[in-house]
Design a protein around this nucleic acid. Sequence first.
DNA 1: GGTAATTTTTGACCTAAATCAAAAAGTTAA
DNA 2: TTAACTTTTTGATTTAGGTCAAAAATTACC
Lengths: 193, 193
Amino acid sequence: MNNQQSIPLREGIRKRQILSEADEKLFISFFRRTELKSKTLLVREGQICDEMYYIARGCVVSYQWVGNKQVTLWFGHEGDFITCFKSWINNVPSHEYIEPVEDCEIYLISRKDFFQLVNENPGIHHFYRVLLEEGYLYWENRASLLLFKSAEEKLAALLKRAPKAMSRYPLNQIASYLGITQETLSRLRSKKI
Amino acid sequence: MNNQQSIPLREGIRKRQILSEADEKLFISFFRRTELKSKTLLVREGQICDEMYYIARGCVVSYQWVGNKQVTLWFGHEGDFITCFKSWINNVPSHEYIEPVEDCEIYLISRKDFFQLVNENPGIHHFYRVLLEEGYLYWENRASLLLFKSAEEKLAALLKRAPKAMSRYPLNQIASYLGITQETLSRLRSKKI
DNA sequence: GGTAATTTTTGACCTAAATCAAAAAGTTAA
DNA sequence: TTAACTTTTTGATTTAGGTCAAAAATTACC
């Protein structure tokens, strides 16, 4: 990929790991830029997720169907590297959907290219390590919020981390992200004002 | 460390990443073996956790104080590499306690040695990557159980993964691991029989 | 610009699990 | 072997948040 066009991606990489100019160029050259309309599924259940995505613009939601209910697993937005990690790591079919909530500008790289680079290039390996550490801490934190916080506290924590969440995502997605119903979230919100 | 004495540790490493004989020897040589009586704190809140532990024998619990309640974050047992990752990764004080529940045989390595090896040795770097992937998937799974499973389903999931948990850990630790009270767990259990 | 479709709010009621309290069972230690 | 302590169980009651249903507010689209 032309280096000129990939400034947001470069920023996303630099935020995690500073590479030599050559390594950075090499790494970026394996990404492909694309645009996605909202609601155009990026990953669907049952499919092996063999790509990683960098969100340059827009936002997405990842969810799973539990009975007839859509449960939000996570939100992704500008600056995030995302994929279905369970599928990505173990090379097994995904259990989750990833869907743009706004129109997105995305940079994507194939699993094959990514792991080849990771295995050959120490700087890029280090980049992946930072990504994994970031994800580890994200999920640890999310689990601990779910473990012992009330609905109100979980909402406060989300709004602190992502103040715009309330206006970017529909209520039912935010509610199920917090592990509460949308009625409860609506009541919480009106109580707040 | 003498290679003869460290068979369990070697198994723990091999399960995650096959190293060359020389790399394996090198890696193991940086670990130190120790025994720990139950209830002898391994990590306490406020302390920077700059060691990683391999459990060769015994089991531990990690918990956090929330008000006057002890909340179980995770359990560790034979074959696990453990540390307070939040502290380990960011080099900040730990928010959690790690405490042996049974007498333990432990192999430990310092953060400094570990990261030096990781940065110099591609095989060991790969080992760390596998550890992070393992942890990532653990927490993702744990969060999703907490997100949409009932008390009964969460208990079933724990007993499936760790059938002996019920006899190794006190009830209050298991209950708070599941995000329920010990009264509820006791009632669930008696209902089961 | 008006109608349909979707999303959010509100209300009435219900329930899984929490809380509080005390009894029972198990463990330790003298 | 008994007293003291800890852990687990049982019972009565409460509550945060769920469920179901319908109204209100938004948004989408001929």
